[in-house]
Amino acid sequence: MTISPELAGNILLSLVLVVGILIGLFLPRLFGRRRYRSPQVYRPAEPGGDDVESLKKLNEDLAAKTRALEAKELELTLTNNRLQKLEEAKSKFVAVTTHQLRTPLSAIKWTFNMLQGGQLGALSADEKTFVNKGAESTERMIKIVNDLLKVDQIEAERKDYQFTSIQLEDLVESVIFEFENQAESKKIEVNIKKPAKPLPTIEADAFKLRMVLENLIDNAIKYNHYKGRVEVILSDENINTTKNTIEVTIADTGIGIPVEEREKIFSKFFRATNAVAAEPDGSGLGLYLSRDIIEKHSGTLWFETSREGTRFHISLPLHQRT
Protein backbone atom coordinates (compact mmCIF):
# COMPACT_ATOMS: atom_id res chain seq x y z
CA MET A 1 0.00 0.00 0.00
CA THR A 2 1.41 3.32 -0.93
CA ILE A 3 0.94 6.38 1.17
CA SER A 4 -0.14 9.43 -0.72
CA PRO A 5 1.61 12.70 0.19
CA GLU A 6 -1.81 14.02 1.22
CA LEU A 7 -2.32 11.22 3.75
CA ALA A 8 1.20 11.62 5.07
CA GLY A 9 0.51 15.28 5.56
CA ASN A 10 -2.62 14.42 7.52
CA ILE A 11 -0.74 12.00 9.75
CA LEU A 12 1.92 14.56 10.44
CA LEU A 13 -0.68 17.13 11.24
CA SER A 14 -2.41 14.70 13.65
CA LEU A 15 0.84 13.96 15.36
CA VAL A 16 1.69 17.60 15.82
CA LEU A 17 -1.80 18.18 17.16
CA VAL A 18 -1.61 15.26 19.62
CA VAL A 19 1.81 16.28 20.88
CA GLY A 20 0.60 19.84 21.20
CA ILE A 21 -2.44 18.77 23.20
CA LEU A 22 -0.33 16.45 25.38
CA ILE A 23 2.04 19.25 26.26
CA GLY A 24 -0.84 21.60 26.82
CA LEU A 25 -2.59 19.13 29.12
CA PHE A 26 0.18 17.62 31.11
CA LEU A 27 2.42 20.54 31.72
CA PRO A 28 -0.03 22.35 33.99
CA ARG A 29 -0.83 19.07 35.79
CA LEU A 30 2.83 18.40 36.41
CA PHE A 31 3.00 21.71 38.17
CA GLY A 32 -0.14 21.01 40.17
CA ARG A 33 -2.16 23.75 38.60
CA ARG A 34 -5.86 24.49 39.02
CA ARG A 35 -8.36 21.74 38.55
CA TYR A 36 -11.03 23.61 36.65
CA ARG A 37 -10.19 25.06 33.32
CA SER A 38 -12.23 26.88 30.80
CA PRO A 39 -14.18 24.49 28.58
CA GLN A 40 -12.17 23.22 25.62
CA VAL A 41 -13.45 22.75 22.16
CA TYR A 42 -14.04 19.12 21.37
CA ARG A 43 -12.45 17.91 18.16
CA PRO A 44 -13.13 14.40 16.95
CA ALA A 45 -10.09 12.23 16.25
CA GLU A 46 -8.91 12.67 12.73
CA PRO A 47 -8.71 9.55 10.58
CA GLY A 48 -5.46 8.09 9.42
CA GLY A 49 -3.30 7.93 12.59
CA ASP A 50 -2.10 4.55 13.77
CA ASP A 51 -4.07 2.73 16.51
CA VAL A 52 -2.02 3.84 19.54
CA GLU A 53 -2.05 7.42 18.42
CA SER A 54 -5.77 7.53 17.68
CA LEU A 55 -6.52 5.85 21.00
CA LYS A 56 -4.42 8.44 22.77
CA LYS A 57 -6.20 11.08 20.83
CA LEU A 58 -9.59 9.62 21.72
CA ASN A 59 -8.55 9.51 25.33
CA GLU A 60 -7.54 13.12 25.22
CA ASP A 61 -10.77 14.11 23.56
CA LEU A 62 -12.67 12.35 26.31
CA ALA A 63 -10.60 14.06 28.96
CA ALA A 64 -11.31 17.40 27.33
CA LYS A 65 -15.00 16.59 27.27
CA THR A 66 -14.97 15.59 30.92
CA ARG A 67 -13.30 18.85 31.86
CA ALA A 68 -15.84 20.76 29.83
CA LEU A 69 -18.61 18.95 31.71
CA GLU A 70 -16.99 19.61 35.05
CA ALA A 71 -16.77 23.28 34.20
CA LYS A 72 -20.43 23.25 33.17
CA GLU A 73 -21.34 21.57 36.44
CA LEU A 74 -19.53 24.23 38.41
CA GLU A 75 -21.28 26.89 36.39
CA LEU A 76 -24.68 25.30 37.11
CA THR A 77 -23.94 25.05 40.82
CA LEU A 78 -23.05 28.72 40.85
CA THR A 79 -26.21 29.63 38.93
CA ASN A 80 -28.27 27.54 41.32
CA ASN A 81 -26.77 29.29 44.33
CA ARG A 82 -27.42 32.62 42.73
CA LEU A 83 -31.08 31.70 42.08
CA GLN A 84 -31.49 30.57 45.67
CA LYS A 85 -30.09 33.86 46.90
CA LEU A 86 -32.42 35.71 44.55
CA GLU A 87 -35.39 33.74 45.86
CA GLU A 88 -34.40 34.61 49.43
CA ALA A 89 -33.98 38.25 48.49
CA LYS A 90 -37.40 38.29 46.85
CA SER A 91 -38.95 36.74 49.90
CA LYS A 92 -37.28 39.25 52.16
CA PHE A 93 -38.31 42.10 49.90
CA VAL A 94 -41.95 41.01 50.00
CA ALA A 95 -41.87 40.62 53.78
CA VAL A 96 -40.24 43.98 54.40
CA THR A 97 -42.41 45.96 51.99
CA THR A 98 -45.62 44.37 53.16
CA HIS A 99 -44.74 45.03 56.80
CA GLN A 100 -43.88 48.59 55.95
CA LEU A 101 -47.10 49.03 54.01
CA ARG A 102 -49.02 47.91 57.05
CA THR A 103 -48.02 50.90 59.19
CA PRO A 104 -49.45 53.62 56.92
CA LEU A 105 -52.39 51.35 56.18
CA SER A 106 -53.10 51.02 59.90
CA ALA A 107 -52.99 54.80 60.22
CA ILE A 108 -55.51 55.23 57.40
CA LYS A 109 -57.70 52.42 58.69
CA TRP A 110 -57.74 53.77 62.24
CA THR A 111 -58.47 57.30 61.07
CA PHE A 112 -61.46 56.15 59.04
CA ASN A 113 -62.46 54.00 61.95
CA MET A 114 -62.47 57.00 64.30
CA LEU A 115 -64.38 59.08 61.76
CA GLN A 116 -66.95 56.32 61.30
CA GLY A 117 -67.34 55.95 65.04
CA GLY A 118 -67.97 59.68 65.39
CA GLN A 119 -64.99 60.03 67.73
CA LEU A 120 -63.61 62.88 65.68
CA GLY A 121 -66.93 64.70 65.56
CA ALA A 122 -70.31 64.09 63.93
CA LEU A 123 -70.37 63.58 60.17
CA SER A 124 -72.95 64.65 57.63
CA ALA A 125 -74.63 61.94 55.55
CA ASP A 126 -72.45 62.89 52.59
CA GLU A 127 -69.26 62.74 54.60
CA LYS A 128 -70.26 59.37 55.99
CA THR A 129 -70.63 57.96 52.47
CA PHE A 130 -67.16 59.13 51.48
CA VAL A 131 -65.61 57.93 54.71
CA ASN A 132 -67.21 54.51 54.25
CA LYS A 133 -65.85 54.28 50.70
CA GLY A 134 -62.42 55.23 51.94
CA ALA A 135 -62.60 52.62 54.67
CA GLU A 136 -63.64 49.95 52.15
CA SER A 137 -60.73 50.75 49.83
CA THR A 138 -58.35 50.57 52.74
CA GLU A 139 -59.68 47.14 53.69
CA ARG A 140 -59.19 46.00 50.11
CA MET A 141 -55.59 47.14 50.18
CA ILE A 142 -54.94 45.47 53.55
CA LYS A 143 -56.39 42.25 52.22
CA ILE A 144 -54.06 42.33 49.22
CA VAL A 145 -51.05 43.00 51.44
CA ASN A 146 -52.06 40.13 53.72
CA ASP A 147 -52.57 37.82 50.76
CA LEU A 148 -49.15 38.71 49.39
CA LEU A 149 -47.61 37.87 52.72
CA LYS A 150 -49.60 34.68 52.85
CA VAL A 151 -48.35 33.55 49.43
CA ASP A 152 -44.85 34.39 50.42
CA GLN A 153 -45.15 32.52 53.68
CA ILE A 154 -46.72 29.53 52.00
CA GLU A 155 -44.02 29.50 49.37
CA ALA A 156 -41.41 29.73 52.10
CA GLU A 157 -43.09 27.04 54.16
CA ARG A 158 -43.50 24.61 51.32
CA LYS A 159 -41.60 21.96 53.17
CA ASP A 160 -43.27 22.82 56.42
CA TYR A 161 -46.38 20.67 56.19
CA GLN A 162 -47.66 19.01 59.34
CA PHE A 163 -49.67 15.96 58.50
CA THR A 164 -52.10 14.55 61.01
CA SER A 165 -55.05 12.20 60.84
CA ILE A 166 -58.15 14.11 59.79
CA GLN A 167 -61.83 13.31 59.68
CA LEU A 168 -62.83 15.15 56.51
CA GLU A 169 -66.53 15.50 57.31
CA ASP A 170 -65.74 17.22 60.63
CA LEU A 171 -63.42 19.68 58.92
CA VAL A 172 -65.99 20.43 56.19
CA GLU A 173 -68.76 20.95 58.74
CA SER A 174 -66.74 23.38 60.80
CA VAL A 175 -65.80 25.36 57.69
CA ILE A 176 -69.44 25.54 56.55
CA PHE A 177 -70.36 26.79 60.01
CA GLU A 178 -68.00 29.76 59.50
CA PHE A 179 -69.91 30.81 56.39
CA GLU A 180 -73.41 30.79 57.90
CA ASN A 181 -73.71 34.57 58.04
CA GLN A 182 -72.22 35.18 54.65
CA ALA A 183 -74.55 32.63 53.07
CA GLU A 184 -77.55 33.99 54.96
CA SER A 185 -76.93 37.49 53.62
CA LYS A 186 -77.47 36.20 50.06
CA LYS A 187 -80.12 33.68 51.16
CA ILE A 188 -77.93 30.88 49.93
CA GLU A 189 -78.50 27.39 51.22
CA VAL A 190 -75.29 25.56 52.08
CA ASN A 191 -75.65 21.80 52.52
CA ILE A 192 -73.31 18.97 53.23
CA LYS A 193 -74.03 15.55 51.85
CA LYS A 194 -72.26 12.95 53.93
CA PRO A 195 -72.60 9.24 54.55
CA ALA A 196 -74.24 7.81 57.67
CA LYS A 197 -71.09 6.16 58.95
CA PRO A 198 -67.77 7.97 59.37
CA LEU A 199 -65.48 8.09 56.34
CA PRO A 200 -61.96 6.76 56.60
CA THR A 201 -59.52 9.37 57.89
CA ILE A 202 -56.93 11.02 55.70
CA GLU A 203 -53.46 12.31 56.44
CA ALA A 204 -53.41 16.05 55.85
CA ASP A 205 -52.24 19.40 57.13
CA ALA A 206 -55.48 20.53 58.79
CA PHE A 207 -54.65 24.23 58.68
CA LYS A 208 -53.78 24.29 55.00
CA LEU A 209 -56.60 21.99 53.92
CA ARG A 210 -58.97 24.25 55.82
CA MET A 211 -57.70 27.21 53.77
CA VAL A 212 -58.56 25.36 50.56
CA LEU A 213 -62.07 24.48 51.72
CA GLU A 214 -62.65 28.02 52.95
CA ASN A 215 -61.52 29.42 49.64
CA LEU A 216 -63.72 27.10 47.55
CA ILE A 217 -66.80 27.56 49.71
CA ASP A 218 -66.25 31.31 49.84
CA ASN A 219 -66.09 31.38 46.01
CA ALA A 220 -69.16 29.17 45.72
CA ILE A 221 -71.15 31.64 47.84
CA LYS A 222 -69.63 34.80 46.38
CA TYR A 223 -70.18 33.92 42.74
CA ASN A 224 -73.61 32.43 43.27
CA HIS A 225 -77.03 33.86 42.54
CA TYR A 226 -79.20 35.31 45.25
CA LYS A 227 -81.10 32.36 46.78
CA GLY A 228 -78.69 29.96 45.11
CA ARG A 229 -77.38 26.69 46.52
CA VAL A 230 -73.99 25.37 47.57
CA GLU A 231 -73.52 21.70 48.19
CA VAL A 232 -70.48 19.99 49.61
CA ILE A 233 -70.60 16.35 48.63
CA LEU A 234 -68.67 13.87 50.65
CA SER A 235 -70.19 10.45 50.27
CA ASP A 236 -69.27 6.78 50.07
CA GLU A 237 -69.45 7.03 46.26
CA ASN A 238 -66.64 9.57 46.47
CA ILE A 239 -64.21 6.90 47.57
CA ASN A 240 -62.27 5.44 44.68
CA THR A 241 -61.05 2.05 45.86
CA THR A 242 -58.82 1.38 42.86
CA LYS A 243 -56.96 4.67 43.13
CA ASN A 244 -57.39 4.67 46.90
CA THR A 245 -58.54 8.28 46.93
CA ILE A 246 -61.39 10.26 48.41
CA GLU A 247 -63.10 13.12 46.66
CA VAL A 248 -64.78 16.23 48.01
CA THR A 249 -67.03 18.12 45.62
CA ILE A 250 -68.09 21.72 46.14
CA ALA A 251 -70.98 22.50 43.81
CA ASP A 252 -72.59 25.87 43.28
CA THR A 253 -75.51 27.18 41.20
CA GLY A 254 -73.66 30.27 39.91
CA ILE A 255 -73.21 31.38 36.32
CA GLY A 256 -70.16 29.21 35.66
CA ILE A 257 -66.68 30.10 34.45
CA PRO A 258 -66.47 31.61 30.93
CA VAL A 259 -64.81 29.34 28.36
CA GLU A 260 -61.93 31.70 27.63
CA GLU A 261 -61.00 31.91 31.29
CA ARG A 262 -61.14 28.25 32.23
CA GLU A 263 -57.49 27.58 31.61
CA LYS A 264 -56.29 30.53 33.61
CA ILE A 265 -58.18 30.30 36.85
CA PHE A 266 -55.36 28.54 38.68
CA SER A 267 -52.75 31.12 37.67
CA LYS A 268 -51.22 33.41 40.23
CA PHE A 269 -53.01 36.76 40.44
CA PHE A 270 -55.57 35.78 37.80
CA ARG A 271 -59.03 37.23 38.30
CA ALA A 272 -62.01 36.18 36.23
CA THR A 273 -64.06 39.03 34.74
CA ASN A 274 -67.21 38.04 36.61
CA ALA A 275 -65.11 37.69 39.76
CA VAL A 276 -63.88 41.26 39.41
CA ALA A 277 -67.46 42.41 38.86
CA ALA A 278 -68.83 40.47 41.81
CA GLU A 279 -66.04 41.13 44.25
CA PRO A 280 -63.50 43.82 43.46
CA ASP A 281 -61.41 43.12 46.55
CA GLY A 282 -60.05 39.70 45.59
CA SER A 283 -56.36 39.21 45.08
CA GLY A 284 -56.46 36.44 42.51
CA LEU A 285 -54.46 34.12 44.71
CA GLY A 286 -57.09 31.83 46.23
CA LEU A 287 -57.22 29.13 43.59
CA TYR A 288 -53.51 29.33 42.90
CA LEU A 289 -52.78 28.65 46.56
CA SER A 290 -55.50 26.02 46.80
CA ARG A 291 -54.12 23.99 43.95
CA ASP A 292 -50.63 24.28 45.34
CA ILE A 293 -51.76 23.01 48.73
CA ILE A 294 -53.73 20.09 47.28
CA GLU A 295 -50.77 19.09 45.14
CA LYS A 296 -48.57 19.12 48.24
CA HIS A 297 -50.99 16.52 49.61
CA SER A 298 -50.35 14.44 46.47
CA GLY A 299 -53.91 15.22 45.46
CA THR A 300 -55.60 16.96 42.55
CA LEU A 301 -57.94 19.92 42.26
CA TRP A 302 -60.05 20.39 39.15
CA PHE A 303 -63.47 21.65 38.10
CA GLU A 304 -66.41 21.19 35.79
CA THR A 305 -68.41 24.22 34.78
CA SER A 306 -71.49 25.14 32.80
CA ARG A 307 -73.96 27.99 32.79
CA GLU A 308 -75.85 26.17 35.53
CA GLY A 309 -72.96 26.21 37.96
CA THR A 310 -69.48 25.03 38.79
CA ARG A 311 -68.28 21.93 40.61
CA PHE A 312 -64.83 21.90 42.13
CA HIS A 313 -63.40 18.50 42.96
CA ILE A 314 -60.64 17.81 45.43
CA SER A 315 -59.20 14.34 45.28
CA LEU A 316 -56.95 13.24 48.12
CA PRO A 317 -55.09 10.00 48.73
CA LEU A 318 -56.59 7.90 51.50
CA HIS A 319 -53.34 6.67 52.94
CA GLN A 320 -50.80 9.37 52.68
CA ARG A 321 -47.13 8.82 53.32
CA THR A 322 -47.21 5.10 53.99
Partner: peptide, 9 residues
Protein backbone atom coordinates in the same frame (compact mmCIF):
# COMPACT_ATOMS: atom_id res chain seq x y z
CA UNK B 1 -52.78 41.79 67.38
CA UNK B 2 -51.61 42.64 63.86
CA UNK B 3 -52.30 46.38 63.66
CA UNK B 4 -53.59 46.51 60.11
CA UNK B 5 -56.01 43.66 60.77
CA UNK B 6 -57.77 45.25 63.74
CA UNK B 7 -59.77 48.43 64.09
CA UNK B 8 -59.26 50.62 67.12
CA UNK B 9 -62.69 49.46 68.26
Amino acid sequence: LVKANFTLD
